[in-house]
Simulated scan of single mutants.
Amino acid sequence: MLDLVQTPVTGRENPTHLTPQLAALSAFYRALNSRDLELMSQNWLQSDQAAMDNPLGGIKRGWEEIQTVYQRLFASPSQYWFEFYDYSLHERDAIFYVVGRERGEFTVAGATLAMAIRTTRIFTLSQGEWRQVHHHGSIEDPDLLMRYQQAVRGGNTR
């Protein structure tokens, strides 16, 4: 039976107390929650091999396409936070992946959405550093998905 980790990864963890894999995962959430595009760029593999499929951007390939999704999110007037929990970590050779859930809040124009996203992230070892090479996120609730997409694109959440 697989152990599921319930302690959330928020990006506020002390990386010196984490395994290199969890430090890379934590760095992603630190970049996301602080809107740090440079840190986000360091977290992702700078290659055409990188791919992301998420509720905001559809399928993006390569960092140049992926970063446009983060630029749009980081530039939005919204307030948000996300954390990763209820996950399992799997490692083999120069790859590890995590399968779990994200939760958080997304607030724009005074309306707050309680976020619930199924999430998988894959990291590869590149030049001695763990770099994210793939992300897939799905919002199960179609109403929440529509409201989230509208909010990030500048609409309202109602």
Rank of each mutant, 00 (worst) to 15 (best):
D3C: 11
M52H: 02
R61F: 09
S76T: 13
A27R: 00
P8W: 07
G155K: 06
I122H: 15
G104S: 06
G100K: 02
G57V: 07
H135S: 14
Y80M: 05
T68N: 14
D36M: 06
L145R: 09
N33V: 07
Q79A: 12
F106T: 02
G104D: 10
F106N: 02
G57D: 15
L113A: 08
L18W: 03
A114Q: 12
T112P: 03
D93T: 07
A109D: 15
E38N: 13
G137F: 01
Y85W: 11
V108S: 04
L73P: 00
L73I: 11
V5T: 07
A109P: 03
F106S: 01
T19D: 13
G110N: 06
F123H: 02
G110S: 08
R72V: 12
D143Y: 14
I66C: 02
A111S: 11
Q132D: 10
E65L: 06
W44C: 07
I117C: 00
L73S: 01
R72I: 10
H17R: 12
N156W: 04
G100I: 02
E64H: 11
H135F: 08
D3N: 14
A24Q: 03
Y70I: 06
Q21S: 03
S41F: 00
D143I: 15
T120P: 00
G154L: 14
